Simulated assay, not measured.
Amino acid sequence: MGGRFSVAIVDDHALIGLAIGPLIEHSDDLVFLGAVRSVTALRQGELHPDLVVLDLMLRDGTTPADNVQVLRDRGAQVLVLTSGEDCYLVREALRTDALGVVRKSAPPAAILAAIQRAARGELFVDAEWAVTVDADPDLESAPLTDRERDVLALYASGIGAKQVATQLGISENTVNDHLKRIKLAYQRLGRPAPTKVELYRRGVEDGFLPVPGRR
């Protein structure tokens, strides 16, 4: 699609598609494929978007975790849309491979920005996201050393292992060893982080990295 990302909405309230669809349609880097009422309907309609904007609470009995898994198995990124009415489900969504959670009540420009970031495969986090993470009693922080935290912070910011090594005054092999230990620590906690995006997510969750917009 000439460098543009395709987006579909899964929400059983038609007004959401009517409200957010035009935002997507008028974005130069996005293509709107339409809105459907369920993940099943998306599959039956043979839609294969790059990103799915998924309602947190669908009334078909499905769970956020199941829906995100199905969509990720189909190769789509996921951004969860919520009214914030159920903190438990929000926390469940944050434990999935979704790239973030955005409120339906957010300003249109903020919703569009979140969609654009997620479509590019970037994690979307904000201060409200962090508050939900802070309130999660089941979130056990990884026991990282100070050096491992430094490596995580630099690497997850987007630079490569070689640049991390230069900034910290250590070898690239040492950086890679630290990264292996960091990933192993999260794997043991049941919070795997095999990719840079997921490492960034874990760093924010554990307070090793700052949340944009949060003081």
Rank of each mutant, 00 (worst) to 15 (best):
P137R: 05
I170W: 04
L56R: 08
T174P: 00
V204W: 02
P212F: 09
D11A: 04
T63S: 13
K104F: 10
A193Y: 01
R103N: 00
R202N: 14
F208S: 03
K196M: 08
V31H: 01
D177A: 14
A8S: 12
G169R: 05
L152M: 13
D136K: 08
D29Y: 03
L79P: 15
D146C: 06
L79N: 09
A135G: 11
V80N: 13
V39E: 11
E25H: 09
L23Q: 11
D206S: 01
T63P: 00
R201D: 04
A14Y: 03
G190D: 06
P64T: 09
V102G: 05
Y155F: 15
R214C: 03
V52A: 15
D50C: 03
I115E: 14
Q187F: 12
G75W: 03
V131S: 15
R215T: 09
M1L: 03
G100N: 10
V52E: 12
L94R: 10
E85P: 00
G160A: 13
A161E: 02
L15A: 14
L30W: 04
R120E: 07
S157H: 10
S105C: 13
Q77M: 07
I9G: 13
L47C: 06
F32V: 10
E46M: 05
R149S: 00
D11Q: 07
E128P: 13
D12G: 09
S171E: 09
Y155A: 08
V39N: 14
R147N: 09
L23T: 14
E148K: 07
K183L: 02
A19C: 01
D97L: 08
P49R: 11
D55I: 05
E122A: 15
G213R: 03
Q116A: 14
R72W: 06
A19Q: 09
A14I: 15
L71D: 04
G75M: 08
M1A: 12
R191V: 03
Q44R: 12
A161N: 02
V10R: 11
L99Y: 11
T40V: 15
I24D: 07
K104Y: 07
G3S: 14
P210L: 14
R4K: 15
D146F: 02
T195Q: 04
R37C: 10
R201H: 05
R215N: 14
G213W: 01
P143M: 12
L152V: 09
Q77G: 14
A193K: 08
V125C: 00
